[in-house]
Nucleic acid binder design. Sequence first.
DNA 1: TTCATGTATGTTAGTGTTCACTAACTTTGT
DNA 2: ACAAAGTTAGTGAACACTAACATACATGAA
Lengths: 193, 193
Amino acid sequence: MDIKPRQLEIIEAAGQLVTEDGFAALTTKRLAERMHFTEAALYRHFKSKEEILVTMLHHLAANMDERLARVAEEHPDPMERVGAMFDSQFAFFQKHPQYLMAIFATGMLEASHGIDAGIERIMVVKRRHLLNAIKEGQRSGAFTSDHPADTLAHIIMGTFRLHMLQWRMSGRSFDVRKKGKALIGAALDLITN
Amino acid sequence: MDIKPRQLEIIEAAGQLVTEDGFAALTTKRLAERMHFTEAALYRHFKSKEEILVTMLHHLAANMDERLARVAEEHPDPMERVGAMFDSQFAFFQKHPQYLMAIFATGMLEASHGIDAGIERIMVVKRRHLLNAIKEGQRSGAFTSDHPADTLAHIIMGTFRLHMLQWRMSGRSFDVRKKGKALIGAALDLITN
DNA sequence: TTCATGTATGTTAGTGTTCACTAACTTTGT
DNA sequence: ACAAAGTTAGTGAACACTAACATACATGAA
């Protein structure tokens, strides 16, 4: 499933609309306006509105998986790796805020099974990379073994997600990377032996 | 702003629809069906669909504020109080899952400013009660003072929210109270001196 | 070089469906 | 008699999507 350049433009415009004004704002009319063409033209590139969202989520999951795998390779030390993973996430969403919707949509959308599945896949990808790093850190003794790895992963993920939510709710009015580094740093400090 | 019994029935039915099938499922037609009357009858009780949601959020925020204040009174010990606060939250949402939407809606809805404001108020209420307990715990030396109280509150809140999200995504298929107690307990353990 | 043909990407002008909401009337209980 | 709470039968607006047609450009044979 490769994405053509024109399709990517449409996906990014769709993400912008959702991130700016919520899901209800993603209509074929508004999306076509933002692309500076007519509604009908959308259907030359995607067969439905749902396909636009599903393709976006697929693209995002693949991108994130690859990016986090690269970060993991570059940082053998688990403690440092977790920090680098989240910094990479913050940098990505700072550069591409149109994809923020994919973090929050879960739990409230359910417009279609395909969309739900796409969103869940993104969570699974992140969870997998984080859990690997934490387990490794527990083996090396860097992180506490007083609690199961998935409990620690849950606490870190929850901290991250709430931070992103507050960033978005504030209109992205603060430095998500700086404040995020402090928050994740504090959480990491708490689970460090 | 007092809520009549019939209004409360409508509010709960609306919450059910959203929690079961997402925001798009809350239509006047489906809501009227669930109430076993016609769409027009809805407008005898609320002047608009938005008013239904805003009233629900207002009701929920007031209820939560009162409940958490009572828990705080009953538990002078900060450590124990935080545990009791979240247990009260878990018990509430287990009994009234139709209000789950209010936890997740933020960040993705924005159908109207009134709804957004209502959702934010609920977060603020919870945050205030939690922050009080944590600050007190830091003063008494029960909790670590290595990190600011609002950082610790953020980590606990994030842990709670992700837990509720996973409960909802799973179709409420596990014991939210039991698993929640373990998670919050682990987080509390991490911030305990 | 010329020109036919194919493909990609647009356009106009609609379709039927669903939406939130309303006017006018009816029933029921006090 | 009156008010509260329901009904029927609609409204216009917005929705996702489509059929038919138009244009631009690349390829390659005459």
